[in-house]
């Protein structure tokens, strides 16, 4: 086998195996109508961080923001910028867990003014995380004056479970939920050099949830 065909074979195998992620997306809508969004209205995607056993990853929130931003009508506010602008009211300790509390928060003129000044119409809360659920095999590496190398085979499975909830700050209502469950297996083959074949579980979950959320606004 020539070098070029070997590289092609490895690249093909990588593409095939790295695509080995299954994603299930469920959604719930309050109505079939597209969510109204006026020119200048903005959306912010925020991660829930109050749970003791997991933490919604900041880069996952950023990824969903980018996915939503692909819809031309949507202006997405960056999560850290929004949290800084309303500090300390959206920290894990203080963030509203329900619309009742959000409504009470907006009855405080100081907070309401700051939020309205940003033309914020929708808040999308994301709760969940990606965890390693199973791990098998091992890879050993050794190094010496004459050189080094790795040998072995390892595999691990990751599962990402996330739920998105859309709040409309104008109507003070919840308009829908999207739940995504992504699973994928990653491999590490080492014969001399380690060759990682990583399942993009979180990226797939982000794409799945982002595309589905976009349909709420763009139909």
């Amino acid at each position: 086998m020539s070098k070029a065909s070997l590289i092609t074979a490895i690249a093909s195998l990588y593409v095939v195996l790295s695509g080995c992620t299954t994603t299930t997306v469920d959604e719930y809508r309050e109505s079939n109508e597209q969510l109204s969004i006026q020119s200048g209205d903005k959306v912010v995607v925020l991660g829930r961080r109050h749970a003791s056993d997991h933490e919604t990853e900041p880069d996952f929130i950023g990824c969903i923001g980018k996915e939503l931003g692909k819809a031309t009508a949507l202006n997405v506010i960056d999560e850290p910028a929004f949290m800084d602008s309303v500090y300390p009211w959206f920290e894990p300790r203080t963030a509203p867990l329900g619309l009742k509390r959000m409504s009470k928060m907006l009855s405080e003129p100081m907070i309401a003014t700051r939020i309205r000044s940003q033309n914020l119409r929708y808040i999308i809360w994301i709760d969940g995380s990606t965890e390693t659920t199973d791990r098998e095999g091992s890879v050993s590496c050794a190094i010496g004056p004459g050189g080094g190398g790795c040998f072995g085979f390892a595999t691990w499975e990751k599962q990402g479970v996330y739920e998105a909830i859309i709040w409309d700050l104008k109507d003070m209502a919840e308009h829908g939920r999207v739940k995504v469950n992504a699973k994928g297996s990653s491999y590490m083959i080492a014969i001399g050099l380690p060759i990682p074949i990583i399942a993009q579980v979180q990226d797939q979950a982000c794409e799945g949830i982002g595309k589905q959320l976009r349909t709420f606004f763009t139909g």
């Binding site: 500090y87 300390p88 920290e91 894990p92 300790r93």
Partner: peptide
């Protein structure tokens, strides 16, 4: 940093 932000939030509130 998250802990310090939390301290600030706790102090203010």
């Amino acid at each position: 940093i998250v802990a310090l932000r939390d301290a600030g939030a706790h102090f203010i509130i």
